[in-house]
Design a protein around this nucleic acid. Structure first.
Lengths: 335, 335
DNA sequence: GTGAAAGCGCTAACAT
DNA sequence: ATGTTAGCGCTTTCAC
């Protein structure tokens, strides 16, 4: 077997098979008009040389790179790994591929988007990362769909988004806590600027209010474990203590439970109700048994794919909300 | 601002700036011979049009795509998210980008690699995923470095790898358990075929032996939580029970602790010692306080980058072992 | 320092 | 059904 220093081209295959270079291209294009005989010849030659069409070159012509850019904001939250895996699977099946970037939390992801645009990505998916309105506008001008996942563009109208049922879920949790007899409910926010956290908090407070109860206290946990731990400590250091805490996501709720148990010796459920959002795998683990409103990752990614694959969606980008379900576990059972 | 349906090209910029298209190219190439005056003219025109060089077109000429293909095997383990994040950061800094794939565990990732090769990736990183020797050979023939991360190619010689100190770490854990007075040490393997799991088990058993103790029992947990839970249950159902369990990684050790506590009512540390490998963030959480041998992700990724960026490494691909450190926590303290 | 021209590997229109 | 040709957007000689 000859050692080649670079990949064989369609030309090489054509020469070996005794056909034109265009024939090689056709052999690798589904539905092209080519006889079975030549296709076989080409296939044989291609196999012999280990030829694979250069998708980068193809993209120059077709205008589609087959690349979907993804920017992941908060990488510590397992929720995004799940989403990433689901996405990568579905993209592969659709002949698309995933160009991944991680954004150091907080800052604009503009620099990363610039890079992505140089690769002529077919679409851009922002997983709880944000982009300046100017750049987002540029993407739209170049007909690149921008999809916000688990986050909604603040100032900008006209961008697609797929999120969980933040408001409905938070309201259900409020009702559930009240029904369980908790009377001093607190909230731990994620990042204050995050649409997700704000929607969950607003709906939680509203529903409490509607039931005649104020939001007893609040703190922010930055979507991180240390942040959530601190927030929990702050809340539980009050007198009187809150008797229930709803955390903006499960990842922070795990920290809240651990802090309440180990630093304050509280019995979760009976002495302190804790609820989260996402229904991560860990929520059902015996350590936490966390009540949580689910975000069905697979279904959410299905919606993303629909937007991605339907070019018409560009004109009127949908804002999709995927319903979840309240999973009640021991962390909010008083008895 | 005019709405364009596709991205502006160097030609457009050239026309607007009143220079040749080649000049535009030079303006965007570091160290090209171009006057400051024309560079400024080009920059202005480019900014006006929102021009960004098409990296896919560039790659046709240069032969380098700037893309690094990564195949992630077991996505549930947070270890790989950490690694992925570190990798993506460092790659961005080096002007490379990450084309990510997830392999459904078990099977060969050959299909995915085929896709990657079509994108002419500059290198291939396998994170606990495996590839057929035939395909790996093809990569080498096309001068594409293949790097195994946290896993060693079984049958194939001549591929680069970066792994933690599996043998040294497992041996230290064996010694530590014995020193703590545990006398019936068991092991929970990951996937039996995995080089990582086998190395850890072999070294663990060997060192126990050297200290005059047999490996009391073993089971396999497939690197998953349910698998590890089952394995723990099987081990703890024996009579007599093992008094210590070393798990092939932290992720399984968390499950082992939860199972031992909640299903067998054991007090971790005093009644059952548990140790893991990786030193995940969760190992230090108060829920688990898990003794673990660390795998320094950042350092491991640094080594990967060195291999990636040094083309000479292709000739003699290094097998790098990154030393970690034994972190002793309450899960192996008898008192 | 700058432009003209060739060509990277491919697809698509146009012949035949 | 197949070959010929043009050109996607860029880098890189080669003249000047």
């Amino acid at each position: 077997m000859a050692r080649r220093s670079s990949a064989p081209s369609a030309h090489d295959v054509a020469r070996l098979a005794g056909v034109s270079q265009a024939a090689v291209s056709r052999a690798f294009t589904a539905g092209a008009s080519i006889s079975e005989a030549t296709r076989a010849k080409v296939a044989a030659a291609a196999a012999a040389l280990g030829y694979r069409p250069n998708l980068l070159a193809r993209s120059l012509i077709t205008g589609r790179s087959g690349l979907v850019g993804v920017i992941v904001g908060s990488t510590r939250n397992p929720f995004f790994l799940d989403a990433l895996e689901a996405l990568s699977q579905r993209l592969s099946r659709a002949g698309q591929h995933l160009l991944m970037f991680t954004a150091s939390s907080g800052a604009d992801a503009d620099g990363l988007v610039e890079d992505l645009l140089k690769y002529r990505v077919d679409a851009l998916l922002l997983m709880s990362a944000s982009v300046s309105p100017a750049l987002a506008g540029r993407c739209r001008d170049q007909a690149i769909p921008v999809i916000f996942f688990n986050r909604r563009p603040r100032t900008m109208k006209g961008f697609a988004s797929v999120t969980g049922a933040n408001r409905a879920g938070a309201a259900q949790i409020a009702e559930h806590l009240i029904a369980q007899g908790y009377r001093r409910p607190a909230f731990i926010a994620g990042i204050e600027a995050s649409s997700t956290s704000r929607e969950r908090e607003a709906a939680f407070a509203e529903r409490l209010h509607a039931c005649g109860l104020p939001l007893f206290a609040r703190a922010a946990g930055r979507y991180e474990r240390p942040g959530a731990w601190e927030a929990t400590r702050a809340l539980l250091s009050r007198d009187p203590q809150p008797d229930a805490i709803f955390c903006a996501n499960d990842f922070m709720a795990f920290a809240a439970i651990d802090c309440a148990r180990h630093e304050f010796g509280l019995e979760i459920g009976r002495q302190l109700g804790v609820a989260g959002f996402d229904d991560l795998e860990g929520a059902s683990w015996s350590t936490w048994k966390l009540t949580s409103y689910s975000q069905p990752v697979d279904e959410m990614i299905d919606r993303v794919m629909e937007i991605l694959l339907d070019p018409d969606r560009l004109a009127d980008p949908p804002r999709i909300i995927v319903e979840g379900e309240l999973k009640i576990r021991d962390s909010t059972r008083r008895v």
